[in-house]
Design a protein around this nucleic acid. Structure first.
Length: 471
RNA sequence: GGUCCCUUCGUCUAUCGGUUAGGACACUAGAUUUUCAAUCUAGGAAGAGGGGUUCGACUCCCCUAGGGACUACCA
């Protein structure tokens, strides 16, 4: 492999909005392939469209990539800054006779377009063969594509794709204001950046043929192309807002972990045998663009949830406590002074059941409640006089417990049940209700242990002696 | 309309001419049970349709159907 130039990939988003998960996956595949081959992963911001590009979008994209952990191996390149270089390339093409000035007006173009469409051919400019005498009217520079022959894009995922050159129109290289267009800029920049593998969305497959022609005209080596399918919504239609979320920032806000996102996205449109859950290192070791699936994949929330649950289980409790705290904050709920400590103590008990961070927050709500707890109706109904008395005996029994830890408490509860000559069902539900205030909670012994002796006994005391009877 | 791409369980996928077409998610049933989960066990579920090629096609070729992209002085 050392006799071959090393692989250079790049992610080249246009900063016209948030980083969508489709783009995120494209970035991930580029990153994985670079890491797999020991190559370089670059980032380029395609901001040649001055109207639609915004600094806010640049920020959002950088933030998204950062969150996902996809670091570029070099400072990002801003395409617009290379405009002079692009113009020089166009001049070269003009000098070689591979490009021409075109004075067609928008109206003339419209007419030609409808005509060409009706005739089932690519549009052609009348200026392709004749230059105009010197004048000061605005013009664009178009690429002068060959009229015969075919161009083959040897795509790494699709295989060889053949295009008849006559079907390819003469695309605009320089706008009438002298600004370079995307199709010219990508070619020049990818060449200048030494990109060897262009891994990008399926929607560029058609462009690849025309870009290939430009590479050849400029006498640049044509890079390898890999056009990966787009991600669709659960219904198979193009992913949009109504499918729940598009931007990676939204996934972050919804409580998905970046490592879960990487695993899920990698698995969407690519596979390695039966492996479903794998580490970044394994993904890097196994990934190859050639193995990317050809068909578009649908976003499946259930599976994403499942994978996120897996990584939630693996995640450090302190990290999760901070995430839950942040989620609560965003919901406008403030934490008590010891809130973080309480969270961290209870998280290991509930994280197996959570699919997202907000779910974790729900499952853990019981520990954050402040005394005296309001008892839900169900629990109130459970507190008959008989149960009330039993609960008082239980409180005394627990007060006497020498050690306040899960296994010991479990033992205490069993002893108590035996002592009373009843099953757990006789007092378990009531105890649960009193401790949790109706919120879901883990098994009783763990709940008691997480709450601590003082808080547990306090909640029992409140329920038995303070709570107003509303019967 | 034209050009190009795509098509295996509901979903993501494995298979790279010979398999009872495998796995995962989801779903269903059962077990467990002090809530919600989690967990365990079992189960149903697929090669778009039609032609070829071949001893043999999910796999190769063609046609049809369906889906998608492009067809901008957007990227």
């Amino acid at each position: 492999m050392s006799d071959r130039p090393s692989v250079v990939t790049r992610f080249a988003p246009s900063p016209t909005g948030d980083l969508h998960i489709g783009g995120a996956r494209t970035a991930l595949f580029n990153w994985l392939y670079a890491r797999h081959t020991g190559g370089t992963f670059l980032l380029r911001v395609e901001d040649t469209d001055r109207e639609r590009s915004t600094p806010a979008a640049v920020e959002a994209i950088f933030r998204g990539l950062d969150w996902l952990g996809l670091k570029s191996d070099a400072e990002p390149v801003f395409q617009y800054k290379q405009a002079d270089r692009h113009r020089a390339a166009v001049q070269q093409l003009l000098d070689k006779g591979r490009a021409y000035r075109c004075w067609m007006s928008v109206e003339e173009l419209d007419i030609e377009r409808t005509k060409a469409r009706a005739e089932g051919r690519a549009i052609r400019s009348v200026w392709r063969e004749h230059d105009a005498p010197a004048n000061d009217k605005p013009f664009v520079v178009r690429f002068k594509g060959p009229l015969k022959g075919e161009t083959v894009v040897d795509d790494l995922v699709k295989g060889p794709v053949r295009f008849q050159n006559k079907e390819l129109d003469d695309l605009v290289l320089l706008r009438s204001d002298g600004a370079p267009t995307y199709n010219l800029a990508v070619v020049v920049d990818d060449h200048d950046m030494g990109v060897t593998h262009v891994i990008r969305g399926d929607d560029h497959l058609n462009n690849a043929a025309r870009q290939t022609l430009i590479y050849q005209a400029l006498e640049f080596a044509v890079p390898a192309f890999a056009h990966i399918p787009l991600i669709h919504g659960p219904d198979g239609a193009k992913l949009s807002k109504r499918h729940g979320a598009q931007a990676v920032g939204e996934f972050a806000d919804m409580g998905y972990l970046p490592e879960a996102m990487r695993n899920y996205l990698a698995r969407l449109g690519w596979g390695h045998g039966d492996d479903e859950i794998f580490s970044d290192a394994q993904a890097v070791e196994w990934f190859d663009v050639a193995d990317v699936v050809k068909a578009p994949a649908r976003l499946d929330w259930a599976k994403l949830n499942h994978i996120n649950n897996h990584y939630l289980r693996l995640a450090d409790d302190h990290r999760l406590a901070l995430l839950v705290a942040k989620a609560l904050e965003q919901k406008g709920e403030s934490l008590a002074a010891d809130g973080l400590t309480r969270l961290e103590a209870a998280i290991p008990l509930v994280k197996e059941g959570a699919k997202t961070v907000p779910e974790l927050a729900d499952l853990i709500a019981f520990t954050l409640k402040v005394r005296p707890l309001a008892l839900d109706e169900k629990t109130q109904n459970l507190l008959t006089d008989e149960t009330r008395e039993r609960m008082q005996r239980l409180t005394e029994h627990l007060s006497a417990a020498p050690i306040w830890a899960p296994t010991e408490i479990e033992g205490q509860l069993k002893d108590f049940a035996a002592q009373e000559g009843v099953g757990m069902g006789k007092f378990g539900p009531a105890l649960r209700g009193i401790l949790s205030g109706g919120s879901p909670a883990p098994d009783l012994a763990s709940t008691l242990a997480a709450l601590g002796r003082e808080e547990s006994l306090g909640r029992l005391h409140d329920a038995l002696f303070k709570a107003t009877k509303t019967l």
